[in-house]
Design a protein around this nucleic acid. Sequence first.
DNA 1: CTGAAAGCGCTTACAG
DNA 2: CTGAAAGCGCTTACAG
Lengths: 339, 339
Amino acid sequence: MKRPTIADVARRAGVSKGAVSYALNGLPGVSEATRQRILAIAAEIGFNPSSAARALSGASAEAVGLALCRPARTLGIEPFFMELISGVEAELAARSYALTLQMVADQEAEIAVYRRWWGERRVDGVLVCDLRTGDRRVPVLEELGLPAVVIGGPGGTGRLASVWSDDAAALMEAVEYLVALGHQRIARVGGLPDLRHTEIRTEAFTRVCRRLGLADAVTVPSDYTGEEGARATRRLLSSPARPSAVIYDNDVMAIAGLSVAQEMGLIVPADLSIVAWDDSPLCRLVHPPLTALGRDIPAYGAHAARRLLAVIGGAAAGAVQDEPAHLTPRGSTAPPRGR
Amino acid sequence: MKRPTIADVARRAGVSKGAVSYALNGLPGVSEATRQRILAIAAEIGFNPSSAARALSGASAEAVGLALCRPARTLGIEPFFMELISGVEAELAARSYALTLQMVADQEAEIAVYRRWWGERRVDGVLVCDLRTGDRRVPVLEELGLPAVVIGGPGGTGRLASVWSDDAAALMEAVEYLVALGHQRIARVGGLPDLRHTEIRTEAFTRVCRRLGLADAVTVPSDYTGEEGARATRRLLSSPARPSAVIYDNDVMAIAGLSVAQEMGLIVPADLSIVAWDDSPLCRLVHPPLTALGRDIPAYGAHAARRLLAVIGGAAAGAVQDEPAHLTPRGSTAPPRGR
DNA sequence: CTGAAAGCGCTTACAG
DNA sequence: CTGAAAGCGCTTACAG
């Protein structure tokens, strides 16, 4: 089952390999009649140019890399990444780019993967997730000259291109909404503390609470898992100054928090209001459905992929803003009891 | 920022390019001293052989493909695929194989992707998910000669290699457990009807219920989404002969079913017992936590990847069985009220 | 044990 | 508008 090469097409068409290449790539240099004949023959014998040969002769790898640094079992449960990948993929597929995926254990391993990919010319560029404060990947990517788009920020992305969403604004919207409902004691269960967007959210939370005159605006750090979300919730609900509303940095922790509240005999939303980030179908599955801060994650991924393709094509780097998350009120938020 | 090539290493080491190639690939043909010197220089200047050049000169693409045929927004919510991918990836990364991922709209598009990948020599083999009855991908893959491992079965995989898990046995275990608790009216909310494993489960469910003398052992077909799971549950719980236990074909539908039951004022598990397939962290997030049929999905993915690498290496095809799912009883199952 | 050379399948100046 | 040829960076027989 020999796979056809450009030489097979050329022979059948009675032209040179060069002519076939021009025809296939839509370049001038062949007459329209010849081009059509060549295309027909290529389609007929099922010819697809070898990606390796194309990559080797100066063209690009036609592939983009994505390294994910989360433990296998945690990754699955958060819809965020799969939705992001879906969006990235949709955009890439439309331009016949492949997506190369790799799981890594930590930032050092991720940096090693970038070095290898670049050296092997396996990818034309990479998408960088989970930006951290003082991220070590940024200077390496800059030094390598590997086209990259950071999904996150703003800030901390060095000279790399980035796509970001205004988490601070979204968080403020949520807090203002809760205050409008009458809440005065609002807590937050945050994501991994060294992620850049956690830092941004924490800072925004502190700021807006101070502005609105809320006391005890505490953020409990966590790690996005249900276990940690449950633990943090238990601690918050057991404290003397129990919050009447909690904002969670992801959907999984919010759902875990809901379960804990129910376990402890609290009625949501009468005794406790809950707001989740990352509005996903999960938020609508539980009872009551969760009020959530959400945005179109596949579109966010597609946006990042588009930016990366542009950067690979030589476009200037720079931070581009994606739409901010917006609040969708559902059954998990209400005025606090006794108001 | 020119990336070093094998010629750079050869020049620095004062040997031929061939010698560098032998040294790097651990082949005989260079003395140990020379090999060490070459390796040191390669490491020093950060040389990585071009994957395109390697692929072109007869070697393999060192990449494996995975096409996923689910709508973007559905994919995210089911932890199954991300866990599977994690396992696949872990296995591939250990052998320096890349994973190329592509989303496709339907089977025809998936087949086109396989043809293209193979023609482009972009992948050395593929992993095939969501086996259907009379799956059109199987004959195409056979004809192409593209090394493949089907994740699913048994049966319907033609001459392709496969890795499967005994869903029939797992389902029977769940039904027997419910019957032991005293349940007589058990229903099931099934997955997409034309998936091979849905068919296997449905057939097993019918068989075991007949054997145990259960009447009304109805399976309501569904599509794995929370909405459909909720709808199916509402219908089941509104029927005159309301089931006292429901088995769901995935975790998402089970959680949706739990919410519906609570909405309708039923107590789980006193009024309704719930069993979920695909035991994921989600099952432990809700209240009560769900009794579930689960297995190690990352390990399943790793197993499939190992098989694929073996098949690429020339191993014989054949169906290999992975461990069956086992039942983990939690708070969502109990003897029916009034017994 | 080592070197020189052909070849993988494309792309792309360079001549006609 | 078309053809012949070099070259991308490796691997791998084939000579020494």
